[in-house]
Design a protein around this nucleic acid. Sequence first.
DNA 1: AGGTTATATTCCAATATTACGATGAATAGA
DNA 2: TCTATTCATCGTAATATTGGAATATAACCT
Lengths: 111, 111
Amino acid sequence: MGITKSDKFTEAQNRLANIAKVLGHPARIAIIQHLFKIDSCICGDLVNEIGLAQPTISQHLKVLKSVGIIQGSISGTSVCYCIDQDEWNNLSEIIGQFLSQKANTVDDVCC
Amino acid sequence: MGITKSDKFTEAQNRLANIAKVLGHPARIAIIQHLFKIDSCICGDLVNEIGLAQPTISQHLKVLKSVGIIQGSISGTSVCYCIDQDEWNNLSEIIGQFLSQKANTVDDVCC
DNA sequence: AGGTTATATTCCAATATTACGATGAATAGA
DNA sequence: TCTATTCATCGTAATATTGGAATATAACCT
């Protein structure tokens, strides 16, 4: 595996795929849901909440940060994570537009 | 890597992540977009349309079929693929609901 | 400074994914 | 039947992802 031939696709296609890829892990879904649930931001409670080791959570947080979904702010020894609502709306728009596609099927030709 | 600890997450979380994962490759995004664009179904024109080898496309189609996004029907020596609009609406609903989450932030506590 | 706590990084094993050549199965047409 | 066409599957190389142990880093407190 491995090499995705990104150069064969458009910027938009790569971007969309990348966002989807980041969402493509249950731990990251769980982290996002938890951050939404707790209005206050969270730190390493996530490690307790989700049943994975601290380095693993840290890595998932990094991935989420890489597409801008979450933000972290340091407060003392702990880091407070939360959803970046603006960025979330942004991504939501991109994905939503993709999802709202409809077949302009006059008649189904075969399926 | 490798083992995703699916048992640590809910059914819904795993399902959502799985859908996202399937969408997490530009080739599959491109395939979906092309199938939407051409109202009539498509066969191995996809191989020409997208610049990847036939086995590779075939593999991506299989992944897309695995979550029910597309259907294929045989006509002669060629196979006709198209979006399963019902299933698409279904997935769209699931993802859309996830995306529409809002922070119930009264005040931002830290970020 | 020394100790504690919280988080990030590094490293590695296990596994998954991507891409494609080679091969196989099915069908249409000569 | 023979051949060409179309697609799926197998096998394999290259690469990516996950998970966690070990370790580093940073901030706080005494």
